[in-house]
Design a protein around this nucleic acid. Structure first.
Lengths: 411, 411
DNA sequence: AATTAGTATGTTGGAGCAACAAACTAATTA
DNA sequence: TAATTAGTTTGTTGCTCCAACATACTAATT
């Protein structure tokens, strides 16, 4: 039982190096003196740390700031040429790959449909193919790749780099890190999709300074990324965050959840539930423009289509979103009472209808969360929309970089 | 915004000192060499750390262990004479004070009924009086007091030492730390009762090595202490853990919760709900021995009394506990899905009926929690029963001691 | 335009202190 | 006596901190 919660001087250096780098990452541009003030570190210590970060090409000087009296400050920023990251999002029926810089700016991307019925091997090979494409495209532009991040539905053993189990894909024990690092000769990280999205919000999104927030991933199901006490909480075995299966809504007539129970929160608030609501409404009323949209586009009922109808002012569409929002709000209220978070961020496919869902969510939360707790909670939309998990895949690599800057070679 | 997540040599020393002390605290007796093996620290470093702990009288050598070949190890233990702790539990209608050693062994205790209707000042003075009594009793026995811990219902600002708001007591902004430290000239700590109980389980109870567990405090309401990633999670403003108000059970005919909503989990599983169940049953059937017990003892319906009936085999009592257990199980299942904890520990007044509740809880959890997640979760009774929060008050002092051993003076 | 004062930034070199490494002594068993 | 394991001693490395210093600018005055 080697717990290794021990500290030594190398740890001190790594901690401070990481602290300064994170500070530059989300307060840039900053000067050495400012950082000394913020962190409480000595000026000379900050200088030494910054020197090292510059040597490792993670940071560079960029102009100076001559405001008031005194010597003007030299401003520091993350070096955009520090390197590039490859992010891979594995969906149930698609694969998405992106290349970004260290700040999450997308430089290249590609998305392909995938059929998990074709089998695990084929889908993984397809993914590897796109990754190789990204690498050759990057080499042509002289990118220096620093790592690959992979986000996947299901439970992940982060340390072993293993997908333990993904119910939607029917996959068990897939050694992603081994597979991808063998092929690409790069450091590889794997993480659950909702968790990855939460880290993305923390690094690049709406939760930059936030110590305690929840990311709610709404789509086929409702999953959560729990960011608590300044870090991701994964639970004992990495299963934490199955917020959609609070089983308390025990009205026996309700739909059976795919988990086998009745009355799970997510059966009232996932994308299926919205489609069902619409179908039920269309059977009764005929005033909606949705049937026409479906016919015109020769497309089945889907969230984007319903959103389109809502945008055109369609009552049935708007009301269905509102109903789903109320159901979501019930769940959010419970989460707020349990976690007292600073923020809750809604992402995933359903978040594209956020403008219709959010007001309903907030309304229900105001009714059902304990007022004292709810007072300061912000409920926000993810700025990444459907790309939340893809940016998440990038973010897990960047997060490792920010945590261990000394792993980057001096050049 | 001085976040001070910085590290320096003092921090290294404190970390390692604390690590070694914690190791001795829950693995004792251990030798220096063993600890070097477990922690990965250098033998000489461990020796230096142990020397300092001995100088501070926190640890002492105790015999030696001549097992196999080689020089026998000198065994180390926490020094029971390191000092004594005063714990204060503030209840809604009682005050309890205990004196223990550093290992939580009770040396002295006293409990008095209190009436919050008499007002805040009177109740606090009554408490201070008992604390003074404890101190004089201790001085007679030459105890060296190291601090006072106070656990209270409601929301606590731990850093400011302030009770922010306790709905049951109707108290607002009580500066407990200031009040008690002025009177007793000792370091004082305040914490919410469920949180304190969770720390007690971590240090002295059923969650010793546990990084991720939940303490469920069941009584008038249902509160929770969330111990995640190896430390207590308090949320943004210290309100985290209001697990009893998940508002999803929306059957309109149900009892209104004291929070104003309908269908809160706790209205189905708190001690009131059990009493109501019994009352409803007694109106229909007359076979129960409960009315006789009430008459004999000239006492109202209460959990201890129902427990007594259950022990005597009374069907109505047992069935009521079972029903409440099933309701609790619904909530537990949700918590298991959300947190994937290693353990859930049931404590508080209701836990005295644990032998009847636990089987029903486990049954419902098995039905409603996701099987993958539930597989390894242990649901246990707190060993402290009704004293969970009192021991908790002790624990918050001991925890500070273990975290910052260098604050203890060399003698 | 030149001078001087004032202020804030960032650098330098030494002090203090932590863990570490290696060589040692100590105490036991086979 | 040899082997083995426990714990100590001595010297090394590398970290932050501190105080003094050099640098670069603004502002006021001559």
């Amino acid at each position: 039982m080697n717990l290794r919660n021990t500290a030594d001087q190398a740890f001190v250096r790594e901690t401070n190096l990481s602290l300064v780098l994170r500070l530059i990452h989300n307060q840039s541009p900053v000067s050495r003196a400012q950082m000394a003030g913020i962190t409480g570190l000595n000026k000379s210590t900050v200088s030494s740390l910054v020197d090292e970060l510059i040597e490792r090409r993670l940071v560079h000087e960029t102009g100076s700031n001559s405001g008031g009296a005194g010597r003007p400050a030299t401003l520091l920023e993350i070096n955009p040429q520090a390197g590039s990251i490859i992010g891979v999002e594995l969906g149930v029926d698609f694969v998405s790959v992106a290349v970004t810089d260290v700040l999450g700016n997308i430089l290249w991307r590609k998305r392909e449909d995938a059929r998990q019925e074709d089998g695990q091997e084929k889908m993984i090979n397809q993914t590897l193919q796109i990754v190789k494409e990204a690498i050759t495209a990057g080499k042509r532009k002289n990118y220096h790749f620093m790592g690959i991040g992979l986000s996947t539905p299901g439970t992940v053993d982060v340390d072993k780099g293993l997908l333990i189990f993904a119910p939607n894909l029917h996959w068990h024990n897939v050694p992603f890190v081994r597979i991808f690092s063998e092929q690409a000769k790069l450091k590889v990280f794997v993480e659950n999709d909702a968790n990855a999205a939460a880290i993305a919000e923390h690094l690049f999104g709406t939760a930059r300074q936030c110590q305690d927030f929840l990311f709610v991933f709404a789509g086929v199901g409702i999953g959560g990324g729990l960011f608590l006490n300044g870090k991701l909480y994964r639970g004992r075995n990495g299963y934490a965050g199955e917020i959609g299966h609070s089983p308390i809504m025990a009205e026996p007539s309700q739909t059976v959840c795919h988990c086998g129970n009745r009355g799970c929160w997510e059966t009232y608030a996932n994308q299926y539930s919205i489609i069902q609501r619409i179908q039920a409404r269309l059977e009764v009323r005929r005033s909606s423009i949705i049937p026409k949209l479906m016919a015109d586009q020769n497309a089945p009922l889907s969230i984007p289509l319903i959103k389109q109808a809502a945008d055109a002012g369609d009552r049935e569409a708007i009301d269905s979103f509102t109903e789903a929002g109320h159901a979501m709000g019930q769940g959010f209220a419970g989460l707020i009472n349990i976690f007292n978070p600073e923020r809750i961020i809604l992402g995933g496919p359903l978040s594209m209808a956020g403008e219709y869902l959010l007001p309903a969510i907030k309304e229900t939360v105001a009714l059902h969360a304990l007022p004292e707790i709810n007072k300061q909670v912000e409920i926000l939309l993810s700025p990444f929309g459907p790309d939340a998990s893809l940016i998440g895949a990038i973010a897990i690599v960047v997060d490792d970089l920010l945590a261990h800057p000394a792993k980057v070679e001096r050049r």
